[in-house]
Amino acid sequence: MNIIKTQPKSITTDSTKYCPGCGHGIILRLIGEVVDELGIRERMILTAPVGCAVVLYDYIFCDVVECAHGRAPAVGTAIKRVHPDKFVLIYQGDGDLAAIGMAEIIHAANRGENMSVIFVNNATYGMTGGQMAPTTLIGQKTTTSPSGRTVKGMGKPIRVCELLATLEETKYLERTSINSVRNINKTKAAIRKVFQNQLNGIGFSMVEVLSMCPVGWKVPPIEAVQFIEEQMLNYFPLGVYKDTE
């Protein structure tokens, strides 16, 4: 009996703190697969955000820095400049990147920092129990938009890929999803592209991943997958929003 596929070597945990059906777990494995395939674990420096993924260092076997909420792009900027030969991966959630850290991600992108960003968009603040995030959909109920997000007073969800695409120094921007096997495979390809860009010195590359947060959305995992299919994909179309080819 030989093993065709099992947990990627650079993933060290046998059990994460993520909730059942949480998308972070899938993305974590995809990162592990790509890191193993590219053989970059030993030169990788990863920023952990404030949010559900804050204890990434318990899951990935590489150097990790835990950043203040929203500041990973600034921290990563400095690390990449101190160690231009190392691989810097910025991992952020939607509250981290698109709310408190919006200035940091825009300016890191605008400076064309040669780093890879994985932006997990699950339309809520998961760690703190499901509050409204900048990407929460109109009408979506959260603990801080109890009768559903309204445009009046709360604005519309922010489309980050489209926003950053206007910054000419961004080199690759793609939005994918992990709500189906096919989309997960496409997410892995996008992660590989965003990693490869950094290794080739192309510049700022980001993949925005629509991800499930069953506990935050207060639905079983199976319905969370449908929520992306039926709701999120309409407002957050998948696709490549910037590429150098």
């Binding site: 500041r71 600034a74 900027t77 400095a78 101190v82 200035a103 940091e104 825009i106 300016h107």
Partner: peptide
């Protein structure tokens, strides 16, 4: 590097020092 704010600047200090 002139940062976008003092907040970003001190977090860059954090990153460079951590490195």
């Amino acid at each position: 590097l002139q940062a976008e704010s003092e907040v970003a600047a001190i977090n860059m200090v954090f990153g460079a020092s951590a490195a």
